[in-house]
């Protein structure tokens, strides 16, 4: 056991850090893009704050196309774009770009669904007090759906955690990459098992924390 950690401890630690950096960074960037998109999508639906059929239809297409491309294909297909954005298609930066592009449409969709859950009567009440549309988005829709939005972040993060395993393809490392290289390609089951256990534990920790946070802030 001690021997195992002497030999592979540093490798697994680096893998954990790489996975966390990739997942966290792409989660943040996916929300930077996906949150405004999701809000825009929600307010332009037919019963939304500012219905706009054309915008809503186009956004719907973009979001659905984005969600339907298999990640491994996307990863390779957007290599020129990735180079343009971060200067390289390799390593952790090379993985964060496609992870962000893959997750942003997913984020937009779950944000839209969280916002759609907000009681229409609350929006009407806010209108009746003279709130502007922007105030209603910020102070009513986002505020009232915050627990649901937090649950969405946890789901997105866990998905990205899983997707990041494929980032090994572009040499970004991470726990998934270690599991594939050592377990699948070199038949070192013990290293694979250690990497998989780390994945399971980390996912459990983040999901449990997300659920706890959502419950704690929910005052309903």
């Amino acid at each position: 056991m001690i021997e195992f950690f002497d030999k592979y401890g540093a490798l697994l630690a680096q893998g954990t850090i790489d996975t966390l950096v990739m997942s966290i960074a792409s989660c943040v960037f996916a929300y930077v893009i996906g949150l405004p998109l999701g809000i825009w999508f929600a307010v332009t639906t037919p019963n939304g704050l500012r219905p706009n059929k054309a915008v809503n239809t186009v956004l719907g297409w973009i979001i659905n196309i984005g969600r339907s491309i298999p990640f491994i294909i996307l990863l390779v297909a957007i290599i020129p774009f990735t180079r343009l954005v971060v200067g390289t298609s390799l390593g952790v930066p090379g993985a964060v770009v496609p992870l962000t592009v893959a997750a942003a449409p997913f984020v937009a969709r779950i944000v839209e669904q969280s916002l759609a859950e907000v009681d229409k009567d609350l929006i009407e009440a806010a209108h009746s007090f003279g709130a502007s549309n922007m105030q209603i988005i910020m102070k009513v829709m986002l505020k009232e759906s915050l627990p649901s939005l937090v649950r969405g972040v946890a789901i997105t993060f866990v998905n990205l955690f899983g997707y990041s395993a494929m980032a090994g393809t572009v040499g970004a490392g991470g726990l998934g990459d270690i599991a594939i290289r050592y377990g699948y390609q070199r038949f070192q089951g013990d290293v694979m098992l250690a990497a998989v256990i780390l994945c399971v534990v980390l996912v459990q920790v983040f999901q449990t924390f997300g659920d706890w946070l959502a419950r704690t802030i929910d005052k309903r």
């Binding site: 609350l122 502007s132 505020k143 009232e144």
Partner: peptide, 22 residues
């Protein structure tokens, strides 16, 4: 103009419409 008007007209509702997270 509309928002100013609405500030001068309070409203209450059947289901109260209170903000649950406030």
């Amino acid at each position: 103009e509309l928002r100013e008007l609405r500030a001068n007209i309070g409203m209450i509702f059947q289901n109260f419409a209170l903000f649950q997270q406030r």
